[in-house]
């Protein structure tokens, strides 16, 4: 009977499409995102490597830069991947393609791509002699934990871009939307730029916030010294008060007594932030939100593509 004829199911279709994506990786030059990510990582590492995971200020700046690289990589991997073949997908959908299989294949393919990019980024951080914490908060190895967080950030960004690419109908529109999305992520990361009131609440919706928090937590930010106060004092060392230079005298005394390190660690305790707590529960919260976002973006992509037949000619 015709009604009982079975066709390739969702899983089969997913593997079929995954093989196609792997061929595209070679033939369509999708592999170029790998050297591109290496160049971006090298440039950023060159600038921020010095104080990353060494001082609170350097950790915040460096972690923000790493988050930027991850989000940039994720967005660029897939912002055009669906919209560039939208009409082809529409044809295949009419021929029986399940959108969940199509997005599922992209999820697997992009996971490998993101993992490769994270591998490159970690390699470059090691080459730049960044003092990555030896042990992580959750994992035994600090480098593995850092790589895992970077993978989650890159992958969530990648899925966000897939969703945008599934919603828009042209590559031009995708490339117009992308910078806004990128700026939104970075401005509302909640750590680097001072925000208050309702604007601070918006940060909860960004990949950048949860990514930044978990990288900083791995770097044990709350235990690191803060140099801002020491540097500020140093700037004011020649300040004259009624013929005396009390700040210079205090600096000299601390240097003579070898208490500079103690002072900057002590000043760091006043700059601790509960959002950067190096606790398992905080890490789990950050990772959990990133994973949840990833799946929500994937679900959004499937829903957007299920409506593809409504596209006007």
């Amino acid at each position: 009977m015709k009604g009982q004829v079975r066709y390739l199911g969702r899983q089969g279709q997913m593997w079929l499409h995954l093989k196609k994506l792997l061929r595209m990786f070679i033939y369509q030059n999708d592999w170029k995102v790998l050297p591109m990510s290496a160049v971006i990582a090298a440039v950023v590492t060159f600038v921020v490597a010095g104080n990353l995971f060494y001082t609170q200020e350097g950790t915040l700046t460096g972690s923000f830069a790493i988050v930027c690289v991850c989000i940039w990589n994720g967005f660029f991997n897939s912002i055009q991947s669906v919209c560039r073949e939208r009409n082809i997908v529409k044809r295949e959908h009419r021929a029986g393609l399940h959108m969940s299989s199509y997005i599922g294949a992209h999820m697997i393919y992009q996971l490998f791509l993101c993992a490769a990019q994270v591998g490159i980024l970690v390699g470059i951080l090691k080459l730049a002699n960044v003092s990555i914490p030896a042990s992580g908060v959750v994992f035994r190895s600090g480098i593995v934990e850092l790589a895992f967080t970077m993978l989650l950030i890159t992958y969530a960004s990648d899925m966000c871009a897939i969703m945008i690419s599934s919603i828009v109908r042209t590559t031009t529109m995708a490339m117009t939307v992308m910078p806004f999305l990128l700026i939104f992520q970075l401005v509302f990361s909640g750590g680097f730029f001072q925000l208050g009131g309702a604007a601070q609440k918006i940060t909860t919706l960004t990949i950048a916030k949860w990514g930044l928090n978990s990288i900083i937590a791995t770097g044990r930010y709350n235990e690191l010294p803060m140099v801002t106060l020491w540097n500020t004092l140093f700037k004011f060392k020649d300040m004259d008060i009624e013929g005396h230079k009390p700040i210079l005298a205090a600096i000299k005394r601390m240097e003579a007594e070898g208490k500079v390190s103690e002072f900057i660690v002590w000043s760091g305790t006043y700059n601790q932030n509960p959002a950067y707590a190096s606790s398992v529960s905080n890490m789990m919260l950050c990772w959990g939100v990133l994973i949840l976002m990833t799946f929500l973006f994937a679900a959004g992509s499937v829903i957007a593509l299920e409506l593809i037949d409504r596209d006007k000619r």
Binding site: R6, L16, L97
Partner: peptide
């Protein structure tokens, strides 16, 4: 994609299992 794979994939999608 190659011609072979394009037609083979179309067949896999459209033909009964």
């Amino acid at each position: 994609d190659t011609v072979d794979h394009t037609i083979k994939d179309a067949a896999d999608l459209r033909l009964p299992v």
